[in-house]
Lab assay of single mutants.
Amino acid sequence: DEETLERIAKELKEKGWTLIVNGKLITDAREALKWLLEEEERR
């Protein structure tokens, strides 16, 4: 759910983690959240 996604995005940002999505590096939590939401919609 959205709360979980926001928590994940926040944790990613705090830890300075990066996500690699389709070979693209995502360092911004907002971008990561946007991607996660798009993935949820596809299901």
Results as ranks from 00 to 15, higher is better:
residue 27 T to D: 07
residue 34 K to M: 13
residue 36 L to A: 03
residue 41 E to V: 12
residue 4 T to F: 14
residue 32 A to P: 00
residue 10 K to Q: 13
residue 25 L to N: 04
residue 5 L to S: 02
residue 37 L to D: 01
residue 39 E to D: 09
residue 15 K to G: 15
residue 30 R to W: 13
residue 19 L to W: 05
residue 43 R to L: 11
residue 19 L to F: 06
residue 13 K to C: 15
residue 41 E to R: 11
residue 31 E to K: 04
residue 36 L to V: 03
residue 40 E to F: 14
residue 37 L to H: 05
residue 43 R to S: 10
residue 26 I to K: 00
residue 29 A to R: 01
residue 10 K to D: 05
residue 13 K to R: 12
residue 38 E to A: 13
residue 13 K to Y: 10
residue 18 T to D: 05
residue 22 N to W: 09
residue 7 R to T: 07
residue 10 K to F: 12
residue 3 E to I: 14
residue 8 I to D: 01
residue 43 R to F: 11
residue 34 K to S: 03
residue 41 E to P: 03
residue 11 E to N: 05
residue 14 E to L: 07
residue 33 L to F: 04
residue 12 L to N: 00
residue 11 E to Q: 08
residue 8 I to W: 12
residue 32 A to I: 15
residue 11 E to G: 03
residue 33 L to A: 14
residue 7 R to K: 08
residue 43 R to N: 10
residue 38 E to Y: 10
residue 14 E to R: 03
residue 18 T to V: 15
residue 20 I to L: 12
residue 34 K to W: 05
residue 43 R to M: 09
residue 29 A to T: 08
residue 36 L to F: 08
residue 37 L to W: 10
residue 30 R to F: 13
residue 36 L to W: 08
residue 12 L to K: 00
residue 7 R to V: 04
residue 23 G to Y: 04
residue 31 E to F: 02
residue 29 A to G: 01
residue 40 E to H: 12
residue 12 L to Q: 00
residue 8 I to H: 02
residue 35 W to R: 15
residue 27 T to P: 01
residue 20 I to Y: 05
residue 36 L to S: 00
residue 38 E to M: 13
residue 38 E to H: 09
residue 43 R to W: 13
residue 38 E to N: 07
residue 39 E to V: 11
residue 24 K to S: 11
residue 40 E to I: 14
residue 19 L to P: 01
residue 31 E to A: 09
residue 38 E to T: 04
residue 24 K to V: 08
residue 24 K to I: 13
residue 27 T to L: 07
residue 35 W to D: 01
residue 12 L to H: 00
residue 8 I to L: 14
residue 18 T to S: 08
residue 16 G to V: 08
residue 21 V to Y: 06
residue 33 L to G: 01
residue 43 R to Q: 12
residue 16 G to Q: 07
residue 40 E to P: 04
residue 12 L to D: 01
residue 20 I to W: 07
residue 34 K to R: 12
residue 36 L to E: 00
residue 2 E to R: 13
residue 21 V to K: 02
residue 40 E to R: 06
residue 15 K to D: 03
residue 7 R to W: 14
residue 33 L to D: 00
residue 29 A to I: 15
residue 16 G to S: 04
residue 15 K to F: 12
residue 39 E to T: 07
residue 39 E to Y: 13
residue 37 L to M: 10
residue 13 K to D: 08
residue 6 E to I: 12
residue 12 L to A: 03
residue 28 D to N: 09
residue 28 D to H: 04
residue 17 W to F: 09
residue 37 L to E: 02
residue 28 D to R: 06
residue 25 L to W: 11
residue 9 A to M: 15
residue 10 K to R: 11
residue 35 W to T: 01
residue 24 K to Y: 14
residue 38 E to W: 10
residue 27 T to V: 07
residue 13 K to T: 13
residue 7 R to L: 11
residue 41 E to G: 12
residue 35 W to P: 00
residue 39 E to A: 07
residue 31 E to P: 00
residue 10 K to G: 04
residue 37 L to I: 08
residue 43 R to D: 10
residue 16 G to W: 09
residue 8 I to A: 02
residue 24 K to H: 12
residue 34 K to D: 04
residue 27 T to W: 06
residue 24 K to G: 06
residue 42 R to N: 06
residue 15 K to Y: 10
residue 5 L to E: 04
residue 16 G to H: 06
residue 14 E to A: 05
residue 5 L to H: 01
residue 37 L to G: 02
residue 9 A to R: 12
residue 8 I to V: 10
residue 26 I to M: 02
residue 40 E to W: 14
residue 31 E to Y: 03
residue 18 T to A: 11
residue 36 L to P: 00
residue 14 E to K: 06
residue 26 I to N: 01
residue 12 L to Y: 05
residue 4 T to I: 14
residue 13 K to E: 14
residue 35 W to F: 09
residue 6 E to T: 06
residue 2 E to Q: 11
residue 11 E to C: 15
residue 9 A to F: 15
residue 40 E to S: 10
residue 23 G to S: 02
residue 3 E to W: 14
residue 26 I to D: 03
residue 39 E to H: 10
residue 25 L to K: 03
residue 32 A to W: 14
residue 35 W to A: 05
residue 12 L to I: 10
residue 25 L to M: 05
residue 14 E to Y: 02
residue 30 R to I: 14
residue 32 A to V: 13
residue 39 E to S: 06
residue 8 I to C: 15
residue 34 K to G: 05
residue 4 T to N: 05
residue 40 E to V: 15
residue 23 G to H: 02
residue 38 E to G: 06
residue 33 L to N: 00
residue 16 G to E: 03
residue 4 T to A: 11
residue 41 E to N: 10
residue 1 D to L: 15
residue 36 L to M: 07
residue 26 I to H: 02
residue 12 L to W: 12
residue 20 I to R: 00
residue 20 I to S: 03
residue 33 L to E: 01
residue 2 E to H: 13
residue 13 K to I: 13
residue 36 L to N: 00
residue 18 T to E: 08
residue 21 V to T: 03
residue 3 E to F: 12
residue 22 N to S: 08
residue 41 E to D: 12
residue 2 E to W: 14
residue 32 A to Y: 11
residue 42 R to K: 09
residue 23 G to K: 00
residue 41 E to K: 13
residue 20 I to N: 04
residue 7 R to D: 05
residue 32 A to G: 01
residue 1 D to R: 11
residue 35 W to C: 11
residue 41 E to T: 09
residue 41 E to M: 13
residue 33 L to V: 06
residue 4 T to S: 09
residue 25 L to G: 03
residue 43 R to K: 07
residue 4 T to L: 15
residue 30 R to D: 06
residue 34 K to E: 10
residue 41 E to W: 12
residue 18 T to Y: 08
residue 30 R to V: 13
residue 9 A to I: 15
residue 18 T to M: 11
residue 23 G to R: 01
residue 13 K to Q: 14
residue 30 R to G: 10
residue 17 W to K: 02
residue 36 L to Y: 08
residue 31 E to N: 07
residue 25 L to P: 08
residue 29 A to C: 10
residue 2 E to Y: 14
residue 9 A to K: 09
residue 18 T to I: 15
residue 26 I to T: 02
residue 24 K to L: 10
residue 34 K to I: 11
residue 42 R to P: 05
residue 42 R to E: 03
residue 20 I to H: 04
residue 17 W to I: 05
residue 3 E to G: 14
residue 15 K to I: 04
residue 27 T to I: 07
residue 27 T to M: 05
residue 6 E to P: 01
residue 35 W to Q: 03
residue 10 K to Y: 07
residue 28 D to E: 04
residue 8 I to G: 00
residue 39 E to I: 13
residue 34 K to Y: 06
residue 2 E to I: 13
residue 13 K to V: 15
residue 14 E to N: 08
residue 23 G to F: 14
residue 27 T to Y: 08
residue 4 T to W: 15
residue 38 E to I: 08
residue 43 R to A: 12
residue 41 E to H: 12
residue 31 E to L: 06
residue 28 D to C: 06
residue 1 D to Q: 07
residue 41 E to L: 13
residue 36 L to H: 01
residue 2 E to V: 11
residue 42 R to S: 04
residue 20 I to Q: 01
residue 22 N to F: 13
residue 8 I to Y: 03
residue 5 L to M: 05
residue 26 I to E: 03
residue 28 D to F: 14
residue 29 A to S: 04
residue 7 R to P: 01
residue 20 I to T: 04
residue 18 T to C: 15
residue 36 L to G: 00
residue 17 W to A: 01
residue 5 L to R: 03
residue 7 R to G: 05
residue 11 E to T: 09
residue 23 G to Q: 02
residue 11 E to M: 15
residue 40 E to A: 11
residue 19 L to Y: 08
residue 26 I to Q: 02
residue 38 E to P: 03
residue 2 E to C: 15
residue 22 N to G: 11
residue 9 A to C: 15
residue 38 E to S: 07
residue 16 G to P: 02
residue 42 R to F: 06
residue 2 E to G: 09
residue 32 A to Q: 04
residue 30 R to T: 11
residue 40 E to D: 09
residue 1 D to N: 10
residue 3 E to D: 12
residue 22 N to A: 09
residue 25 L to H: 07
residue 4 T to R: 13
residue 32 A to T: 03
residue 5 L to K: 02
residue 1 D to M: 12
residue 12 L to E: 00
residue 26 I to Y: 07
residue 8 I to N: 01
residue 18 T to H: 08
residue 28 D to K: 02
residue 21 V to N: 02
residue 17 W to Y: 12
residue 23 G to C: 15
residue 41 E to F: 11
residue 42 R to W: 10
residue 25 L to V: 13
residue 2 E to F: 11
residue 20 I to E: 04
residue 35 W to V: 04
residue 10 K to M: 08
residue 22 N to T: 02
residue 20 I to F: 05
residue 11 E to F: 15
residue 19 L to H: 02
residue 16 G to N: 06
residue 27 T to F: 10
residue 23 G to L: 11
residue 10 K to V: 11
residue 6 E to A: 10
residue 18 T to R: 05
residue 26 I to P: 04
residue 16 G to Y: 07
residue 16 G to D: 02
residue 28 D to W: 14
residue 23 G to W: 12
residue 10 K to L: 13
residue 42 R to I: 09
residue 36 L to D: 00
residue 34 K to Q: 12
residue 5 L to D: 02
residue 25 L to T: 07
residue 7 R to C: 15
residue 14 E to T: 04
residue 8 I to F: 09
residue 12 L to C: 15
residue 24 K to M: 10
residue 39 E to M: 13
residue 32 A to E: 02
residue 43 R to I: 12
residue 32 A to N: 00
residue 1 D to V: 15
residue 4 T to H: 11
residue 7 R to Q: 10
residue 15 K to N: 12
residue 17 W to H: 02
residue 39 E to G: 04
residue 15 K to R: 11
residue 18 T to K: 12
residue 36 L to R: 00
residue 22 N to E: 05
residue 2 E to K: 14
residue 3 E to C: 15
residue 15 K to A: 05
residue 29 A to P: 13
residue 22 N to V: 12
residue 33 L to R: 01
residue 25 L to Q: 10
residue 22 N to Y: 08
residue 18 T to W: 09
residue 26 I to G: 01
residue 31 E to I: 05
residue 8 I to K: 00
residue 40 E to Q: 11
residue 9 A to S: 06
residue 32 A to S: 01
residue 31 E to M: 05
residue 9 A to V: 14
residue 31 E to C: 06
residue 30 R to M: 14
residue 5 L to P: 00
residue 22 N to I: 11
residue 1 D to E: 11
residue 9 A to D: 06
residue 8 I to T: 00
residue 33 L to M: 07
residue 30 R to L: 13
residue 4 T to D: 07
residue 42 R to G: 06
residue 18 T to L: 13
residue 28 D to M: 07
residue 1 D to A: 08
residue 16 G to I: 15
residue 24 K to T: 11
residue 38 E to V: 04
residue 13 K to M: 15
